[in-house]
Write a protein that binds this DNA or RNA. Structure first.
Lengths: 131, 131
DNA sequence: GATACTACTATCCTAAAGGATACCGGTATC
DNA sequence: GATACCGGTATCCTTTAGGATAGTAGTATC
């Protein structure tokens, strides 16, 4: 596995801490990354997003969409139909987060396996004691 | 740039959303990832960590250390000196987050450049208007 | 005429994260 | 005897995230 450059020195470490801090600051919260993932399958309307991200309330969705737009991750377009249609889509800059999201997706899957394995091991241990 | 598998279908998208959600759940908050980065340069004591992560209070540091230990990301060892010495170090499982952290580090650096470039562009635009 | 859809906004509220400050016992140092 | 270091706790407080609920204007549908 490639874990990237090894961080030895205090300076490299501080630079890394700051860079990760910046990233965390931009993608903070429960929803932003999930919304960007959800928009990977194509542009979506407000209600579509709300249905896909179960349990998000319109207020929160609205705010997160505004944040993402301000940061240049999504584009909001209003179509002059009746009633108006509003669609949200990822920008090119959102694609730059692709690697981050992908690593988080992979880690999440591996972590779930890890947890499962641990509870299997625990069950084995209990059985051994019972015998 | 390799952005990983393209997420087309609704199923793949939902799986991705859930995996990213899991990851976010584990590494949530301002501090956990920064602490793991900081521990990359080697095992550290409580006060050392507090000094390196400027502005973290002992209460918060203590709680985050406990969380990280419970999740198996760090190991806490007490040495029976007088007064006691307590050291914290990353476990092997923490290494599995290497790719995630590294991508976040790289993105944070690129993002900073991106912001700088945007404000440079803006300054140019203002100058053009002024002339 | 009642109801439903869209894309939200407004108001209110709770829970959790995180910070400020003080303090503890024990040791060592000045 | 005063001060400082270590590895934290305890207590209190503020800020923020996020959720619940209701409502809006303008169709469109039954």
């Amino acid at each position: 596995m490639n874990n990237g450059p090894i961080i030895h020195t205090k300076e490299a470490c501080n630079a890394a801490v700051n860079a990760v801090r910046d990233t965390l600051y931009v993608v903070n919260g429960k929803w932003k990354l999930l919304m960007l993932v959800s928009l990977m399958t194509g542009p979506k309307r407000f209600k579509e997003l709300q249905r896909e991200l179960e349990s998000i309330t319109p207020k929160v969705l609205s705010k997160e969409l505004r944040d993402l737009e301000l940061n240049g991750f999504i584009k909001r377009t209003v179509y002059d139909t009746t009633p108006v249609t509003v669609i949200y889509e990822r920008t090119e800059y959102a694609d730059s987060l692709g690697n981050v999201i992908n690593e988080m997706r992979e880690w999440g899957m591996k972590h779930r396996e890890h947890i499962k394995q641990m509870s299997r091991d625990e069950a084995e241990a209990r059985k051994a004691v019972a015998v």
